[in-house]
Design a protein around this nucleic acid. Structure first.
Lengths: 119, 119
DNA sequence: GCGCCTACTGCCCGGCCGGGCAGGGTGACG
DNA sequence: CGTCACCCTGCCCGGCCGGGCAGTAGGCGC
């Protein structure tokens, strides 16, 4: 039956115009169909990562943020970067402020949503 | 010039076979081209969310996990769900165990990578 | 009826987190 | 030369986290 071996693609796009454009581009591709609401998909097409949004981060802040996504403590971040835990904590505080986060868990989630980190 | 108004799509796919299949499907679509390494894209096509991976979570655990992604404390989770902070903490501990995470920040990152939550 | 699972609650403890405050050094720029 | 941004370090404090331990109750399958 038609569709059985189709590649199922789910769209997760915030911009309605972008979504319409994608529907037009991908709607007629043989072997590919778009997933319905709630349907399991083979892959997801999202504009989240491409947003390249979020605040400007310094190189050190990026390094600290990457380590935050691994669940590292301030002490572990300090050890990984060869700095003191106090300094690591200072950078984490700067990140919380720039990402408008209430804590490191919130910071990681915000950063992922903004496309600042890829999980 | 050709390509100027193209929709630029970046692939972030772990499976090589899947990537090849996508290249075959999308390579010939007019108005669409695939981003080069490091190039900024309009959207990202990823199999991360579609993996539907990760452990089986109970309904309550899913609720707690959603609240974790907002950076909520155990006390806040308890308040939001109408249960005690101790119970919220119990569910968080179960999540850390199921997601093989060292802490709530790690749990949120793991869950996002596995497609258990969408950030 | 029993065992298992889920959901719930409490307490204790050591370590960690985050805000606030103090301070210093270096390099780039006008 | 002064200023600014970035990076670094220390200390204090209250609150939070996570592991460990104890317990209860209800629903479901055998």
């Amino acid at each position: 039956m038609s569709g059985e071996d189709d590649f199922v693609l789910a769209l997760r796009v915030a911009d309605a115009g972008l979504e319409a454009r994608l529907l037009a581009l991908l709607g007629g591709v043989p072997g590919l169909r778009l997933a319905e609401e709630g349907e399991a998909a083979d892959a997801v097409l999202s504009d989240a990562d491409a947003r390249a949004g979020g605040p400007e981060l310094t190189p050190r802040e990026r390094e600290v943020l990457e380590l935050l996504t691994t669940g590292a403590s301030n002490r572990a971040i300090g050890a990984a970067l060869g700095i003191s835990a106090h300094t690591a904590k200072f950078h984490v505080a700067r990140l919380l402020d720039k990402l408008d986060a209430t804590g490191r868990t919130d910071a990681v989630a915000h950063a992922a949503r903004l496309g600042v980190v890829h999980l």
